[in-house]
Design a protein around this nucleic acid. Structure first.
Lengths: 148, 148
DNA sequence: ACACAAGTGTAGCCAAGGCTTTAATTGGCG
DNA sequence: CGCCAATTAAAGCCTTGGCTACACTTGTGT
């Protein structure tokens, strides 16, 4: 191997922004599952693989794999044939995701997107909203409310 | 609750929205590549694999694969060892993506997101903005401009 | 007590989208 | 003209996240 330390790719414009988007995308699925498990725990007291799969619109093996990944990331715990539970970190993530989702939906509505579309689009958008943008959204919403 | 587990999945929120988001995600990469090829054709008259790869921040083989996918989708054409060109459909897609990108950036800025962050976030966000939301964004921007 | 249905887990396949390595083509230069 | 560097292509591997098929627990009902 020639010593090719992963230095800056080269003098290209900014390919990093794509990598950043790709990284966010990797996290997106985890976030969705964590949020879903949080919802199920709130509603039913526990999250079962079948329910998670049904809600996510996937088959149980797929849900199992996702849960395995959540466990690997320290976001969830589960014992064989028992329900799935979120760790403290998982709960924190779920809460954060939920809050962000609401903010995104509210912002979309605030700029004139129909409520239904806002919900639908937010599902895809939310994972790509940076903390900076989220803060801006909240400020914008606060100002809008105050001005109305 | 009695044991009766034969109940319908309760208020199961359509899992389709997740599938929708997944579909959008599949298109995202293609859109990015098409846009990039369009840029390169405008700037240099042709798009070469090496340039595409550099700009996207990936290796050449990855870019080659992406181009193959674009060709499969009827969005691009290329002859071995010659440049890559967009088909009519590809050009249309690239233009649409470019316009949407600008609108998204403008909207983010309009609601108070710093310009740099807006650019960065738009890269991920743009692929999930529906036509309905996009139209709402444009109307919002038009109104903002008029009111300023 | 045991059988069977439902739920869960495991294995193996596929496509996408990354990567590295190796081969081939092109084209410029000595 | 022939060789070499750069470019492109091809082949093979990895991970993610879908899927189906099949195996195994669990626990409920007779």
């Amino acid at each position: 191997m020639t010593e090719t330390p992963n230095e800056t790719p080269d003098n290209a414009p900014q390919p990093e922004r794509f990598n950043q988007a790709r990284a966010a995308q990797a996290m997106a699925v985890l976030e969705d599952y964590a949020e879903m498990i949080g919802d199920l725990m709130d509603e039913m007291g526990e999250a079962r693989i079948t329910d998670i799969a049904a809600r996510m619109g996937v088959t149980h093996p797929t849900a199992t794999k996702a849960v395995a990944r959540l466990k690997r990331e320290g976001l969830a715990m589960s014992r064989p044939y028992r329900g799935v539970f979120l760790t403290e970190a998982g709960v924190a993530l779920a809460d954060r995701v939920r809050g962000r989702h609401r903010t995104v939906v509210d912002l979309l509505i605030a700029v004139g997107v129909p409520a239904e579309t806002a919900e639908l689009d937010a599902e895809g958008l939310e994972h790509y909203v940076s903390a900076t943008s989220l803060a801006a959204f909240e400020m914008f919403l606060a100002n809008s409310a105050a001005r109305s």
